[in-house]
Nucleic acid binder design. Structure first.
Lengths: 128, 128
DNA sequence: AATAGCTATGTTGCGTAATATATAGCGGCA
DNA sequence: TGCCGCTATATATTACGCAACATAGCTATT
């Protein structure tokens, strides 16, 4: 518990396909979880989201790219479940690379000026 | 014809104060508009948002930082309206600087790998 | 005193997003 | 053959963000 992020800076990189998000922080994490757990439903459970939500995210991804990122099969055990395609693996690692580049740039002395004046919690009110 | 097709990449920098957003793309634009127009309501009108919404954004900002970014006064003309404090001006320019840094980093060859496989519109469905 | 334009809030209602529930089919396995 | 866990999807229900509306008070101007 207490998953308070260390930095109040949140930089999110999103790739749009029309008005849908083809890739973003949450979808990338889901891909990692699918890779680790071998199915959409197990990945969703591990991330505390409903199967439906996880499946919708996967569906959006598969519809937004030239090839599917996630290959699925019904049934259980071998052949069943979901796994990343080679293409999905490539997209994920490319996205992570961009994240690293941008994140690195963002950790510069410029930050100090901002973060040091930023309250950790908002005050209740200013005027009576 | 300035038909520059917009990049599917969208990078947004947000600074959090608890679960509220202390600074982000929209709030920074609003600060610019207040600077330009001299009041919250005129800035809101110029940006096509209600006075209430604009005021709430300003209120959040003022509560999230150690000092207020926007100084306000009732009434009209001299003394009335809203203007940026020196502190608000500093925060705004610092935020813009980080935006520039990050934006520069993001325009790298890494992108090509991703964007070339990204559809401009999502396909309708994958399975019959 | 009346007016105009601003700040500063409370309230209410609606459209949409998130979530829950239901169902159908597939594939191995005991 | 019957069961389990998965994919895949439809439908219903709940939650919630947001916009619209209303109101009150302040300040300078006429």
């Amino acid at each position: 518990m207490g998953m308070t992020s260390p930095s109040p800076f949140k930089i999110s990189i999103r790739l749009y396909c029309g008005d849908e998000i083809a890739m973003g922080p949450g979808k990338a994490d889901l891909l990692d979880a699918i890779k680790a757990h071998g199915s959409i439903s197990a990945a969703g459970r591990a991330m505390g989201m409903s199967y439906r939500r996880a499946w919708l995210l996967v569906d959006t991804m598969n519809r937004c790219w030239s090839e599917p990122l996630v290959a699925t099969a019904p049934g259980v055990a071998h052949g069943g479940g979901a796994r990343l395609t080679d293409f999905g693996d490539m997209v994920l690692s490319q996205y992570r690379a961009v994240q690293e580049n941008v994140g690195g740039t963002a950790s510069r002395p410029d930050h100090a000026k901002l973060t040091q004046s930023l309250r950790s919690r908002p005050r209740a009110s200013q005027k009576g």
